[in-house]
Design a protein around this nucleic acid. Structure first.
Lengths: 183, 183
DNA sequence: AATTTCATGTAACCAGTTACATGATTCA
DNA sequence: TGAATCATGTAACTGGTTACATGAAATT
């Protein structure tokens, strides 16, 4: 059940946004279209089915605005179950796979974390993120030194790009711990 | 036809790797499993179907090693068509969507570019990447200033993370232009 | 002989894309 | 009243995931 939120960033984004305020499918699509949040799908073929999935799983519920019409309009709000699932997802430990494959998902979790988990747990998340990211950088560097002369120049540079990006993440995390901790 | 390579990073990765040396499905999975290239699927359910798709589209062709057996082993090599498709994909202009949604795909293109497009075109790609990335950073910054006080603290930090990561990319590009240009 | 590793594949499922379709409201 | 925009949806397709299945070679 919670799997839908754990596996799909779109579902997580929807659940998180709906936890802040009542939103319709159209509202969500607009947010994804017009903000950098929109590393997510804007297509109705993704958003509406995702809403229905979340609803059938009891994580959100729709309020029909106009009855007696062929096109019912709905705004969705989060349920108790949904909030529990959201908290659960936000609280999951950061796995090496998350760091490697799903940094977007981690940032999505972080973005909703402030209000829902509070400052202390948010800072713990950042510390964990920094640590796991630095660990991963070490393995990337090791692999690079190992393969440097066997590979084409551009392939080496591409690996260096990966390292540079993860370094930016780890620096951001350290900086944010300081700033948010102080603030 | 070329769409398969344009849309799926896995197909592009396979085509690129096969362009360097003959490889079997198993070899490919091993590469994806053990190198940072493996921002891609390692599952047989993705790799083998992808190979068959590329083969039916005439971009690669398999050489059966052992006939007269129930489990034929194949190594794949790129075809003339395939090399043309690969060059075409590597040569595509960088779109804002690429920068926003598919930086991994751009890096994948870059990694294979050295041998196939040569230095001049590779440097042009990097310059384009730097420019488009900086453009995108401007829109991210603009959006952030616009929404800074309307949003939760962690949501703001998450946006800053996005900016930091793109800045790392643009700096990497500038640095790599200098280094590769000189080297 | 047994285990591990090499090696290839399929079936059921899931979520997202594209393209299409249509209804309701607003405003010029 | 016509156009734009608000608003919701579906159908066909695509590609990837998970889990399962099996065969062949190398190693112990």
């Amino acid at each position: 059940m919670i799997d839908s939120v754990r596996k799909s960033n779109l579902s997580l984004a929807i659940l998180g946004l709906v936890s802040l305020q009542p939103l319709s499918g159209y509202d969500l699509r607009k947010i994804f279209r017009t903000t950098p949040m929109g590393h997510f799908s804007t297509s109705p073929g993704a958003v509406y089915p995702a809403l229905r999935r979340l609803e059938t799983r009891g994580l959100i519920k729709g309020r029909v605005r106009k009855r007696n019409t062929l096109r019912p309009k709905q705004t969705f709000i989060i349920t108790g179950e949904g909030l529990k699932a959201l908290k659960g997802t936000l609280s999951m430990p950061i796995t090496p796979d998350d760091v490697k494959w799903n940094m977007d998902g981690l940032m999505l979790r972080f973005a909703f974390m402030g209000k829902i988990l509070g400052k202390k747990r948010t800072l713990r998340f950042l510390a964990e993120l920094a640590a796991k990211t630095e660990e991963y950088i070490v393995t990337l560097e090791r692999h690079l030194e190992h393969s440097r002369d066997k590979m084409d120049a551009t392939a080496v540079y591409a690996q260096e790009h990966g390292i540079a990006v993860y370094r930016a993440t780890s620096q951001w995390a350290e900086h944010t711990i300081a700033d948010f901790g102080r603030g």
